[in-house]
């Protein structure tokens, strides 16, 4: 059935070029767009899909695996050609992706991995460890390789929180004159980071730097430092958000690490297109995507998780 459709599609494509593809739809499923990172993913995928002549269905699962499963049913019933997914849980999502595969719909994953291979066609994942090393190298050099610092950790249940922390320490711990005086979670939250930073400052007024597991916590920490008149403290974040970009350009936070969310989503769509046309992406299933250091030198080129 599917094969017939493809053969027919190929024949039509040869006859009347891109018009034949307009019938095909790519479904784009991500966490809530309230977080600009996920919105950038969805926007990137949609733009690329439309540029390649596809219709799109843009859906959000709100990090709820049950909702994600229902969305997959909807997409399968609608007869989508391919699914672009930032999934709602590494274990829980395997069944949903398998369900689509069984229905002949290939899935292309972005941002987060699932715990099985051979189910999705592609898994394009940000190299969080490499990104954390980049951020840490910049932090170390801003600190002059010495001084007391604080680390703000992300949500403990999120594997990326641990990966980033390990990446930071892989670099920082090689400098014996850098001393971590506090390490606390602020659960990726700006408001929580503000209050955590306030209390850390009271106990440790002699800090020189703060390295944060993401940008929202870096923003919260910076607000607390500013309120305490401690704009001398070096703050480094992770994600490459527009908020931190503006802070860098205004002389506040010193650096962050860009996860190229927009480009990653576009790449997934291109691979889906390639797969639909040729039956193969020609690439490994699991693909790492490098992160990019953002500091005063290139912050002005950053817009919505992409370097212009």
């Amino acid at each position: 059935m599917k094969l017939t459709k493809h053969l027919l599609g190929a024949a039509l494509a040869m006859a009347v070029a891109p018009a034949a593809l307009l019938a095909d739809t790519i479904a784009i499923i991500t966490p809530s767009h309230d977080n600009p990172f996920f919105k950038a993913e969805a926007d990137g995928a949609k733009a690329q899909a439309e540029a390649l002549g596809y219709d799109t269905m843009v859906l959000v699962h709100d990090d709820d695996a049950n909702k994600q499963s229902e969305l997959f049913d909807t997409v399968i019933a609608a007869g989508a050609s391919a699914i672009i997914l930032d999934n709602a849980g590494a274990d829980a999502s395997v069944a949903a992706v398998q369900k689509a595969k069984d229905a002949g719909i290939p899935s292309f994953l972005i941002d987060r991995e699932i715990t099985a291979t051979g189910v999705a066609v592609s898994q394009i994942v940000s190299n969080n460890y490499q990104g954390a090393q980049l951020g840490a190298e910049e932090f170390v050099s801003l600190m002059g390789e010495a001084g007391n610092y604080v680390e703000l950790l992300g949500k403990e249940s999120d594997t990326n929180a641990g990966i980033r922390s390990q990446g930071y320490h892989d670099v920082i711990d090689q400098f014996p004159d850098l001393k971590m005086v506090a390490q606390q979670t602020a659960n990726w939250s700006q408001t929580e980071a503000f209050s955590v930073m306030e209390s850390i400052l009271q106990a440790n007024p002699d800090i020189k730097g703060v390295i944060s597991g993401n940008d929202t916590m870096a923003m919260g920490a910076w607000a607390a430092l500013e309120a305490a008149g401690r704009t001398d403290v070096i703050v480094v974040g992770f994600d490459g958000s527009n908020d931190v970009r503006d802070s860098i350009l205004g002389g506040g936070i010193k650096a962050t690490v860009l996860q190229p969310a927009y480009q990653q989503a576009q790449l997934a769509v291109s691979q889906a297109d390639q797969y639909l046309k040729t039956g193969s992406t020609g690439l490994d299933e699991k693909q790492l995507m490098d992160c990019v250091l953002i500091n005063g030198a290139n912050a002005s080129s950053l817009e919505t998780f992409a370097l212009k």
């Binding site: 994942v125 190299n127 969080n128 460890y129 490499q130 090393q133 190298e137 990966i163 390990q166 990446g167 892989d170 670099v171 090689q174 400098f175 490994d284 299933e285 699991k286 790492l288």
Partner: peptide, 29 residues
Amino acid sequence: GPVVRGTALRDAAPFYDFDEFRDQIEFAK
């Protein structure tokens, strides 16, 4: 060194294949 930035030695070699590693941490190590 003793601190060396980057992953040039690993990435110069086609025979260290990411698919054969447990995850990005093992690969980075």
